[in-house]
């Protein structure tokens, strides 16, 4: 009897991060990388995957040691764990994909202070067994990758008329340069959040309408 409940709980923890509690669109966490590196689809995907990696492995480690870490120094312990994995990613990217590492620059190192990661350790991984922590971290991480990719793709399409460096619109397209510059990041995220607000508002209205 216990088994199906376990599985559904794990699935639940995994799924919530993708949309319903999406770290970027709903909780508005980890904004710095979201805005700073999403000027092309490739950059944002690389950033998302790096964050996903750090999130999964820190959650696993924190969850494993959750009964050993003293409560008073837990935040420091989390930060050290996170910083270790970020260092790993930093060096790995520098060796495997030097071009992307150069483009992302200091923002790879800044994953350490991404509040999404520390937030998940504090709110979830430090209180739950390894399986659930893994599901939660993967879900939240994939939700983050999804959100970053949406922004990156939108900004690249509008700002340079390409997607993954393939031209989309042909010769006549005049690129909307502001979209790949800093203001474009604010605008794109602002309008995406507006769109999501509108979706949620519409769903609520439908629910109240069907209840009456």
């Amino acid at each position: 009897m216990n088994k199906p409940i376990e599985t559904s709980r794990t699935a639940e923890e995994f799924l919530k991060g993708l949309w319903r509690e999406n770290p970027v669109f709903v909780a508005v966490l980890g904004m710095c990388p979201v805005l700073a590196v999403t000027n092309t689809a490739i950059n944002s995907l690389a950033m998302g995957l790096a964050t996903l990696f750090v999130l999964i492995f820190s959650s696993l480690l924190v969850s494993t040691f959750r009964n050993v870490i003293p409560k008073q120094v837990r935040i420091t312990a989390f930060i050290i764990i996170i910083a270790t994995f970020v260092t790993v990613v930093d060096f790995a990217l520098a060796a495997l994909a030097p071009d992307i590492h150069k483009e992302l620059g200091a923002f790879i190192a800044l994953i350490v202070v991404n509040c999404l990661i520390l937030g998940r350790q504090e709110a979830f991984a430090s209180k739950n067994p390894i399986g659930l922590a893994l599901a939660d971290a993967t879900g939240m991480g994939l939700g983050f990758v999804f959100a970053l990719f949406c922004l990156g793709a939108l900004r690249e399409i509008l700002g340079s008329g390409t997607l993954f460096n393939f031209p989309l619109f042909g010769e006549g397209f005049e690129p909307w340069v502001i979209m790949i510059l800093p203001p474009g990041g604010f605008f794109t995220l602002g309008f995406l959040l507006l769109f999501i607000n509108w979706l949620q508002n519409r769903r609520q209205k439908q629910q109240t309408a069907s209840m009456n």
Partner: peptide, 17 residues
């Protein structure tokens, strides 16, 4: 609909511009 984070981001965008 636009109140809250969405509005702040758009204001920030204009400031940034």
């Amino acid at each position: 609909l636009i109140k809250g984070v969405a509005l702040n981001l758009i204001i920030a965008g204009i400031l940034s511009m």
